[in-house]
């Protein structure tokens, strides 16, 4: 069963790549703009750290590791899911969603994984390079267990982000009629772009807790980044991140099914 889905995913990935190679121009322009963006992001932070010694207790190297982690995470989500989820609203509007429902396969899998956006794959690599450089500057010594924990938490962060994306996508069908999911996702992920410690002050602290514990979007990059570069990671936090990922993914599946039900009873 699982094997069938894995095989199917590889076929989808292969055909996506073939399709994209047919339009190389698009592919190259996108990679170029992504590189420009990363360059400016790094430059900005480099300049900031010439003016200040730390941002919310993260020193320069730690902060650069965080940025690498965010960049890799963003790239992963963009590559695997973002474009697919963005097309969902169009599928609903045009009625082409019908064809996804006819197939003897899980609708959520088909809707969210159909197309693999290969032009975002370099971002994951670049993110990894930045993380490695930051670790090298810190003078980190290789530790298999630490890397293992990081990978697990990175994966659960990705799962968490996927869950939120799916919820946003499903909700957008009847809550946000005219908005582009791309824009909403960019606005929403602003919460995972910075260390949670910046939420300081009388009104910011509770806001930070809210997005850490109630709608735990901040866990996505904060927890995996902390495990590598911050002094110590409390075990409860790691467990909490994994549990949150499971709960959010389960909730997203429930909401996606509800959206499908809504579509199937409202359309003609």
């Amino acid at each position: 069963m699982l094997l069938r889905y894995v095989n199917l995913w590889f076929s989808l990935a292969k055909f996506s790549l073939l399709g994209e190679l047919a339009f190389r121009g698009n592919f190259l322009i996108k990679i170029f703009v992504e590189l420009l963006w990363l360059g400016i992001l790094l430059l900005f932070n480099y300049t900031i750290f010439q003016q200040t010694t730390s941002i919310a207790d993260w020193n320069a190297q730690q902060y650069f590791f965080f940025i690498g982690c965010y960049f890799a995470m963003g790239g992963l989500i963009e590559m695997l899911f973002l474009d697919n989820c963005n097309q969902f609203a169009d599928l609903v509007r045009s009625g082409d969603l019908d064809f996804f429902l006819l197939r003897p396969i899980d609708e959520q899998f088909l809707v969210s994984c159909k197309h693999v956006d290969w032009s975002c794959a370099p971002n994951i690599l670049l993110g990894a390079v930045i993380m490695s450089l930051a670790l090298w500057q810190i003078g980190w010594t290789f530790d298999t267990i630490q890397v293992g924990i990081f990978l697990v938490l990175f994966a659960s962060g990705a799962a968490l982000a996927y869950g939120f994306l799916l919820i946003l996508m499903s909700a957008s069908v009847w809550l946000m009629r005219n908005q582009s999911l791309f824009e909403m996702w960019w606005l929403f992920t602003t919460l995972m772009r910075y260390p949670s410690e910046i939420f300081k002050g009388p009104w910011a602290q509770p806001t930070g807790w809210f997005f850490f514990f109630v709608i735990p979007i901040m866990l996505v990059t904060n927890v995996p980044a902390r495990v590598m570069v911050r002094p110590l990671l409390e075990p409860w936090l790691a467990c909490y991140a994994i549990a949150a990922a499971i709960v959010v993914v389960a909730a997203s599946r429930y909401i996606f099914r509800a959206a499908l039900q809504h579509y199937r009873s409202a359309s003609s």
Binding site: R4, L8, S11, L12, F15, F99
Partner: peptide, 24 residues
């Protein structure tokens, strides 16, 4: 549906058929 297209537009039909084989 005559007015809808289910095949992958930019790929040969044979590729879409292969995908079909895996889905079913």
């Amino acid at each position: 549906m005559g007015q809808k297209n289910q095949l992958w537009w930019d790929l040969p039909a044979a590729d879409s058929f292969q995908l079909h084989r895996e889905i079913y």
